[in-house]
Design a protein around this nucleic acid. Structure first.
Lengths: 164, 164
DNA sequence: TATATTTGTGTAGTTAACTACATATATGCT
DNA sequence: AGCATATATGTAGTTAACTACACAAATATA
């Protein structure tokens, strides 16, 4: 099935695209999984559930920084979670710009059920990646590409080539 | 900067999200790069340019299969490339359902310039990933997750846990 | 104290992928 | 030959992320 994968032929040029294909595919699978299990949550909610459970109530910006996601994305996700009754939101006592989010009672009730699914998902990934040092690998990728971006690296290479 | 990354704390549970963050970031960087260099092409066009240059004219479905992308995505991308004057499209002689796409003269003229950029991008990635066997790693990821999806793996784990 | 800057949140608009469905043509079978 | 199925393309609607901008409130500075 993957015999004629042209992207693979492109070597490092295809690296980013292959990364994207895998992560897109896994995201879709996550969505299908929840629907299959008849669970009315969405793929990225787990990280908010886990974060608020672990750290307690947090503001939008604090969440955004903790998971390294742009704040409008956090607002979109958490609004949906509020609509679904999993989060409560109130103004910060000391700083009226801030909105503080926390898990609702409903969330606490449902969490044990969801955590079973997440544990199973984690075990599945862990099994699949057994012996690969995948977490180490991804940490290195992050270090490389978040410290100096793809754009910067390319520009440097263009300069080197020009000067030859 | 990455000290307080909660997703990293989640172990294998955060793996997919970290993959997505990196590939999203690289895609954005790619877009910024083209804009910085004042080049009017988009991040994923390179794979179509490369494919048609290497294989010659192809139909929508053939392209879709070669790069493992859903055909509506291919239509969207190639339509934009046509609008920009890089592709030509004509009906297949033998099969009037098919539409065959090929590089335009303009594309051939511009390709050398673009290929310099892609080479530099590739060198940048290659340098960053030096000694990591990144291509091998990603091939293994593909084998694991395209043969048996994340969903399937999770369901299996759920069953194992239940039976304990 | 008044103004300037920074910070927190919200909104609008963009992008790239997907699935599901619609339609036309080709192919296979009886 | 005629009908059923398969294939190729196209369209519509969904999703999740992003940047850029707007505005209010807090903080810093003159």
């Amino acid at each position: 099935m993957r015999k004629n994968d042209f992207v693979k032929e492109l070597g490092y040029l295809g690296f980013t695209m292959r990364l994207k294909r895998i992560s897109d595919a896994m995201m879709h699978e996550g969505r299908r999984l929840y629907s299959h299990l008849d669970v009315d949550i969405e793929p990225n909610w787990y990280v908010i559930f886990k974060l608020l459970k672990s750290r307690g109530a947090m503001s939008v910006t604090e969440i955004s920084e903790s998971i390294m996601m742009a704040h409008p994305s956090v607002i979109t996700i958490t609004n949906k979670m509020m609509d679904a009754g999993y989060l409560i939101s109130e103004k910060d006592e000391n700083d009226s710009r801030k909105r503080v989010l926390d898990l609702s009672v409903r969330a606490s009730k449902k969490l044990p059920e969801y955590e079973k699914i997440w544990e199973a998902g984690e075990s599945g990934v862990e099994k699949a990646l057994e012996g690969l040092n995948a977490l180490e690998f991804i940490s290195i990728l992050e270090d490389k590409f978040f410290s100096k971006g793809f754009m910067q690296r390319t520009i440097e290479q263009l300069k080197i080539k020009k000067s030859c």
